[in-house]
Design a protein around this nucleic acid. Structure first.
Lengths: 218, 218
DNA sequence: GTCTATATAAGGATAGAC
DNA sequence: GTCTATCCTTATATAGAC
């Protein structure tokens, strides 16, 4: 008799296999990408995640800390992959500017292609770039600033003739172009004959050449 | 006797020569650039403009409409200048991709250098680019979309061998790079020996070469 | 760990005196 | 055209039952 209902009870209230915490992070990622950090309220966020309004404060303490955790969930791994790829590029006998840029771009590409929600997160990253939010910038700089420093140093080593001011200005442009191009991947329509994955890989190669040309401009 | 106080009475309550409406627009520009559209409240906005809280609704009807007017105040003129410059480029015997890009960039440069608040507005423009705000995109697209269409057509005519999909993808990257580079002008430190104006002009030339190289990439 | 209910603050918008 | 005062909604956050 109860056997008939057992599957329903096993399914319980969670309609997905994800924990409350993970569902909140996923919904936050989605809404922050769409509406920005200030524009996404905890009310629509918890509704979208199908959790109780109080759950955000229980699991994360505050909205600000939730924002931090949305980044931490992805950036720890992304940063590690980027630094590993950079080290591999440096270990090559003849490493080029393109190798260094690829070490920065390819891990983000892999994230956006392979991980569920990864493409959305890349758009959140672009948001953070546009927001001049002091608190968020501080968090990101303190926790992940060393990665950008490593890449800037590697690029600088490839372009020793360039004075530092010029170099940093160009890296600034490139950073904006890359961030936005990666974030807008989802918008670019791919040819029907090409898979999403192949399309993005080709786009990434374009970006690398584009950025390398910009950096080398005399 | 009263003569002693006359200057004070002439100064009245307005500490600036600008009207309430203009002060609101100026403060809105500043706060939208710094905190985004959702992040700037009417309360801090009116406090910053030194006008009454009710003044925004009296003069603009709503916050959404105030946002529109912040854009309209600058974009009508900017769009006209851009289209005039594009026409001039097309009228040249041998117009290049660089001429077209310059027609797009130079008017924005002039705005950011010559007009008070112009540099701030360019940052607001970059905000709009990042915001996927449906209402705002609709307003901008309906009122100023034709300008971008004109430029896309002109660029397309210079690169007839490029297929349309590839072209639009590259214009997408370029648009992001240009918008952000222009918005971040204020961040780039200039050499002490160079004036702000000269610095920006040089930066704009870098951008044009950068963008042209990206568009021409094979 | 999740719920309801609520405290408390901040937001946009408006009414009506001046 | 500008003020004060206030309405109403939405927001973040928390208390306490389950």
């Amino acid at each position: 008799m109860f056997g008939f209902f057992a599957p329903l009870r096993i399914a319980h209230l969670n309609s997905t296999p994800f924990s409350t915490k993970e569902r909140i992070l996923g919904a936050a990622e989605e809404l922050f990408a769409r509406n920005g950090f200030a524009g996404a309220s905890l009310r629509e966020l918890t509704a979208s995640a199908k959790v109780n309004l109080a759950a955000v404060n229980y699991h994360f303490g505050s909205k600000d800390n939730l924002i931090n955790e949305v980044f931490r969930r992805r950036l720890d791994e992304l940063s590690t992959h980027r630094l590993e790829a950079l080290q591999a590029a440096r270990d090559k006998a003849k490493s080029t500017l393109e190798d260094i840029l690829a070490a920065f771009i390819h891990p983000a590409l892999a994230l956006s292609v392979d991980k569920p929600g990864g493409a959305t997160f890349v758009r959140v990253l672009a948001r953070a770039y546009a927001e001049h939010n002091e608190r968020l910038r501080k968090f990101l700089s303190e926790n992940y600033g060393h990665v950008l420093k490593e890449f800037a140093a590697a690029i600088s080593a490839e372009l020793p003739h360039l004075d530092k001011e010029e170099l940093y200005w160009r890296i600034d442009i490139i950073a904006g172009a890359l961030t936005y191009a990666m974030a807008d991947f989802g918008v670019i329509k791919r040819r029907g004959s090409m898979s999403e994955k192949v399309h993005r890989e080709r786009a990434a190669e374009h970006l690398i050449r584009f950025a390398a040309a910009g950096l080398r401009a005399d």
